[in-house]
Write a protein that binds this DNA or RNA. Structure first.
Length: 282
DNA sequence: AACTGTCCCTGCAAGC
DNA sequence: TGCTTGCAGGGACAGT
């Protein structure tokens, strides 16, 4: 599933293949993908517009357009962005297609492919982000882009009631961590997912902070994780490589690779399947 | 206010 | 083999 490392890999692909191009034509198949506004709003907002810059906030991709508006793309569960040759045969579920030109010559197509249709594409006015895009406006700190220190964590943990994993998954707290990397981060930090955030020692906070940065950076460097069911690929259709470094996710019942004593357990925490080692996580 | 549970949707895999 | 069922999950929303 696309989380911060996968979205960052896609952002880099967009930087290479899409920035500086002009969108000359837009096709919208399934309207659910543009549900926040409408098919007409997306086509009107993108046609004839040049893409100037691509940034990322948590799992959100934001493209600056020369019209002054911005395009937000969220991949959610099964969304993919694929760069293709003009008139190439499209896979099923290519809900949005943008025809890209450089120097007025149509050069490529950008496909938004999304079988489970949770993803979305929307054009919005950045001055109205707080009302039009409240989810984007209320995102927490990005652990790679913003100033993010153990002190930041300490401050954010104050007065929190839920468990540690629920907090890591909360996008208003730290933006970009999903179910897979939450489990990997907690394992690396040697902390149980059901720990209470407010009661962590200073050394545990430092470990957690380091684990967040390390796991996410390593995953970005590996191009993200591709799982059997998610079919995640980058803009060029390449799979990620971080799944080979997973120590707990998808390894329930197998021996722990870190302590080599315990077995990986699977439970439900914060309503999500959760894998951890009860021998080395406390 | 802050937390938990349910829903959206499709493809895949397990089980009969 | 071929069907049915359950599961996966990000975030909005409703309920507590």
């Amino acid at each position: 599933m696309p989380e911060l490392p996968e979205v960052e890999t896609v952002r880099r692909g967009l930087q290479e293949h899409v920035v500086g191009r002009k969108i000359v034509k837009v096709e919208v198949g399934r309207e659910r993908t543009v549900r926040r506004t409408s098919r007409e709003a997306l086509i009107d907002g993108l046609t004839g517009v040049q893409i100037l810059r691509v940034s990322r906030r948590g799992k959100y991709l934001v493209c600056e357009l020369d019209s002054g508006q911005q395009m937000m793309i969220h991949l959610r569960m099964s969304g993919r962005l694929i760069i293709a040759k003009p008139n190439a045969i499209r896979p099923p579920h290519a809900h949005v297609v943008m025809h890209l030109a450089r120097s007025e010559v149509v050069e490529s197509e950008l496909w938004f492919v999304d079988p489970r249709t949770f993803g979305e594409v929307v054009v919005f006015d950045p001055d109205l982000v707080s009302t039009q895009m409240p989810d984007l406006a209320n995102l927490g700190v990005d652990p790679l882009l913003d100033e993010f220190t153990p002190a930041t964590l300490r401050e954010l943990f104050k007065g929190r009631r839920g468990n540690l994993k629920a907090l890591l998954l909360n996008q208003h707290f730290v933006a970009g961590i999903g179910n897979i990397y939450a489990d990997e981060i907690l394992h690396f930090a040697k902390l149980r997912p059901d720990r209470l955030p407010g009661r962590l020692s200073q050394s545990a906070l430092v470990r957690l902070h380091a684990a967040i940065a390390l796991v996410l950076n390593n995953a970005v460097n590996a191009g993200g994780s591709t799982l059997k069911d998610s079919q995640y690929v980058d803009l060029d259709g390449q799979t990620g490589n971080y799944q080979s470094q997973h120590r707990v996710y998808g390894r329930a019942g197998k021996p722990c690779l870190t302590c080599r004593k315990g077995r990986i357990l699977m439970t439900t925490v914060a309503g999500r399947s959760t894998c951890y080692c009860s021998t080395c996580q406390h």
